[in-house]
Simulated assay, not measured.
Amino acid sequence: MDRDYHVHSTYSDGRFLFQMVRAAAEADLDGVGIADHCSVSDREEIQEQKHLLGFNLDQTYERRREAIERLREETDIAIYDGVEMDYHPAEEGQIRSFLDRAGFQYAIGSVHHLEGVNVHVERYFERQSDADCEALVEQYFDQLVALVESELFDIAAHIDLIERNPALRGYATESQYRRVAEAFTDSRTIPELNAGRALGEYGEFHPSPEFLDVLAEYEVPVTVGTDAHKPGEVGERVRHLERYLDRRNIQPVTVEF
Rank of each mutant, 00 (worst) to 15 (best):
M85A: 06
V145I: 07
Q19I: 06
F104T: 03
E44R: 12
M1R: 10
A35R: 03
T185W: 09
A131H: 04
E236P: 00
I95K: 00
I190W: 05
H112E: 08
R243N: 15
T185R: 15
V253G: 01
R179L: 09
R3T: 08
E115H: 02
V32Q: 06
E204Q: 15
G225T: 10
S12G: 12
E134V: 14
V40D: 08
V137C: 07
M1Q: 07
L241T: 07
F55Y: 11
G82N: 01
A146Y: 03
S12I: 06
L199P: 07
D154W: 06
R22L: 11
E69L: 11
E115C: 09
D42M: 06
F125R: 14
G103C: 12
R72N: 08
V137P: 09
A27V: 14
V121P: 00
R164V: 14
L241S: 10
L99Q: 05
A102S: 10
N249T: 12
D213Q: 13
V7R: 04
E134G: 12
H120M: 14
I190A: 07
I108N: 10
Q94Y: 05
M1L: 14
E192R: 05
V119M: 12
L241E: 00
V7M: 04
R3G: 00
E126I: 04
D213W: 06
Q47D: 13
E256C: 01
L136A: 13
F98K: 11
D160A: 06
G33T: 06
G33R: 01
E74A: 14
V21K: 07
S41H: 00
E219K: 15
Q176G: 09
E217F: 13
S39N: 04
N194E: 05
A135V: 07
M85W: 01
G232M: 04
I190R: 00
S150C: 07
F98N: 08
A78Y: 05
D2T: 00
E92T: 11
D246L: 12
G170Y: 05
D58F: 04
V220K: 14
Y80G: 01
